[in-house]
Amino acid sequence: MTSPALSPRPAALDTRSLGRPVHLLPRVAVRLRETLHRQLCLPWNRRYHAHYDLREVTLQPLDRAAREAEALLDPDAGRWLHAMGPSGLVACRIDRMLVNGLMARRLGLAAGTADPAPGDLSATPITATEERLLQALARQGCQLTLQGLAQLAQQGPDSDDGTAASELPTLQVGSLPTNSTDAWEITLVVRDADAQPERDMSLRVVLDGAYLSPLLRQLASLHRGPSRAAVAVQPLARRLTLKLQARLLEQEMELGSVLDLAPGSLIPIHLADATVLVEGSALMRAAVAEHHGKLCLTSFEDLE
């Protein structure tokens, strides 16, 4: 006797997405990509004569299980710089290929022509110079990401919400902390067009949910629109909208006269009363008057 097939286990709902406009986050990520590309990659390109391009930015709840799986396969993937900021966790991880490429350009080396493979790089010990550059890049990445999120939430970068990088404690090296249940991950995919072959490298920033709460509230308020109570208290004349059109002129002309028209031709007309149409139906007649150089309708009369 064969046992019945087991039904697939239903996926658990992510409580970080419930009641939040997460479907609008891809649109936010596009605007954040434009800001970070201008503030992060373009200065690198000008300074080092490089061709870095911020290909993609994603903003989503942190998948901690996926990050733990990456750390098992690659020890560098489990190496994060993190700190507990004023509003919670701030963490950053940058691919070593990106750090070493920038370091080579800073030292005047021909970056991109003889870059080591990722597997060879993982076996190379981290130097003090690389560690200092990693700290600087991680701090810069956190600063620009937090400022970009604050601007998208219509808050100034100098607002007193604890998001300025200068207020962050020193970033400590270690694994990704697990004491934040409402954590979000912003992933920046950077491409180095000078590398042989071209490579996509990532810069990940993990933030506590408190840093994204202003942005999510702003998106929710824009998505909801005016409250139902505010609409209900308005009278019917205010809630009901109609399309109003005015037919100012009807002119009959012979076909030959129409064919003779050329640029600069004048057609003499006489403005009489205008026919007013509501939703395509002629309902009223109105006189046409001039007021401060504009044509206006006045003296409305119902059509019989």
Rank of each mutant, 00 (worst) to 15 (best):
S3M: 09
A5V: 07
L6Y: 03
L6Q: 09
P8Q: 03
A12W: 05
R16D: 02
R16V: 01
V22R: 05
L24A: 15
R27E: 14
V30F: 08
R31Y: 03
L32M: 06
R33G: 02
E34G: 11
T35F: 04
R38S: 12
Q39N: 12
C41G: 00
L42T: 13
W44M: 08
N45E: 06
N45Q: 05
R47Y: 06
H49R: 15
D53A: 10
R55K: 07
Q60E: 12
D63R: 05
A66G: 05
R67V: 11
A69V: 07
A69S: 11
A71Y: 05
L73Q: 12
A77S: 14
L81F: 06
L81M: 10
M84W: 13
V90N: 00
V90Y: 02
G101S: 15
M103L: 15
R106S: 13
L109E: 09
L109Y: 10
A117F: 07
D120V: 08
D120Q: 15
L121H: 00
I126G: 02
T127H: 07
Q140N: 13
L144C: 01
Q147S: 13
G148A: 15
Q151S: 11
L152E: 15
Q154H: 14
Q155I: 07
P157G: 09
S159L: 04
G162E: 02
T163G: 14
A164S: 15
L168C: 05
L168E: 00
T170N: 10
V173L: 14
S175L: 07
S175V: 09
P177Q: 05
N179Q: 13
D182Y: 01
A183C: 01
A183G: 04
E185N: 12
V190S: 00
V190P: 04
D192A: 12
D192I: 02
D192M: 08
E198D: 10
R199T: 08
S202V: 13
L203G: 01
R204D: 10
R204E: 09
V205T: 09
V206I: 09
G209T: 04
G209M: 05
A210N: 12
A210I: 00
Y211C: 04
P214M: 01
P214G: 04
R217Y: 08
Q218T: 11
A220M: 08
L222S: 10
S227P: 04
S227N: 13
A229I: 02
Q234D: 08
R239A: 02
T241L: 11
K243A: 15
A246M: 02
E250L: 05
Q251M: 00
Q251I: 12
E252W: 10
E252S: 15
M253Q: 13
D260C: 01
A262P: 00
S265G: 06
I267E: 07
I267S: 08
I267N: 07
H270L: 13
L271V: 07
D273T: 09
D273A: 11
A274W: 02
V276I: 15
L277M: 13
L277H: 12
L277K: 04
E279L: 01
G280H: 10
A282D: 08
A282H: 04
M284W: 15
R285V: 09
A286E: 00
A287E: 11
V288C: 10
E290T: 11
E290Y: 03
L297H: 03
T298S: 12
S299L: 09
F300M: 07
D302H: 11
